[in-house]
Simulated scan of single mutants.
Amino acid sequence: MKQGEAKNEIREPFTDYGTYSYADYLTWQIDEMVELIKGKVFKAAAAPGRKHQEVSLKIASQLYYLLKNKTCKVFEAPFDVRLPAHSEKNEDIFTVVQPDICVVSDRTKLDEAGCIGAPDLIVEILSPGNNPKEIYNKF
């Protein structure tokens, strides 16, 4: 908690350029999709376009039918993938991404919040709106 903040005060993102954790992320009441990469907030571009959604649906559908009777699960954004460095505590996780599509075969990585740890497969569909900084940092 930063100096001068009340214990129950909700910290909104983008108000300063500090380092944020998944615990902070969970308190934000915003409508837009954001991701945390090494504690820094990255706003998603505007809603994906029609072509992006068509490609996403085709890939996710094929994966779903391919893996239908397997232990693997297919998820589409928005779906939080938390990447802990040292601890799985929310306040110690500084990278949370929302891949367009991901496949998780180890069901112990799944909880109500999404996935904790790297999925077995991640698909990111690039769009003209993706900026180089976003692509570099997310990669």
Rank of each mutant, 00 (worst) to 15 (best):
K38M: 11
K38D: 15
G39Q: 05
K40I: 10
F42W: 07
A44H: 09
A45W: 01
A47P: 13
A47M: 08
P48S: 10
P48T: 12
G49C: 07
K51G: 09
H52V: 07
H52N: 03
Q53V: 06
Q53F: 04
E54W: 01
V55A: 13
S56I: 11
K58H: 08
K58Y: 08
K58V: 14
I59F: 04
I59A: 05
A60K: 04
S61R: 13
S61E: 13
S61L: 13
Q62D: 14
L63Q: 01
L66P: 03
L67M: 01
L67V: 02
N69M: 10
N69D: 15
K70P: 05
T71Y: 10
T71S: 15
T71V: 14
C72S: 14
C72N: 06
K73P: 05
V74Y: 00
V74W: 02
F75N: 00
F75K: 07
P78H: 06
D80I: 01
D80V: 00
L83A: 11
L83P: 06
P84A: 11
P84W: 07
A85L: 15
A85F: 13
H86E: 15
S87D: 15
E88L: 00
E88Q: 07
K89Y: 02
K89M: 12
N90G: 11
N90V: 12
N90K: 14
E91R: 01
D92P: 00
F94M: 07
T95M: 00
V96E: 01
V97W: 06
V97E: 03
Q98T: 09
D100L: 14
C102A: 05
V103M: 08
V104M: 10
V104A: 13
S105F: 13
S105M: 12
S105G: 14
D106R: 07
R107Q: 06
T108A: 14
K109R: 15
K109T: 12
L110M: 13
D111S: 08
D111A: 00
E112A: 15
A113V: 14
G114K: 08
C115N: 03
C115L: 08
G117D: 12
G117S: 12
G117K: 00
A118Y: 12
P119I: 05
D120F: 10
D120E: 13
L121S: 05
I122D: 06
I122W: 03
V123E: 01
V123C: 00
E124I: 11
E124P: 12
I125C: 08
I125H: 03
L126T: 07
S127N: 11
S127Y: 04
P128M: 08
N130G: 10
N130H: 11
N130C: 10
N131Y: 09
P132C: 00
P132K: 08
P132Q: 10
K133R: 07
K133L: 08
K133W: 03
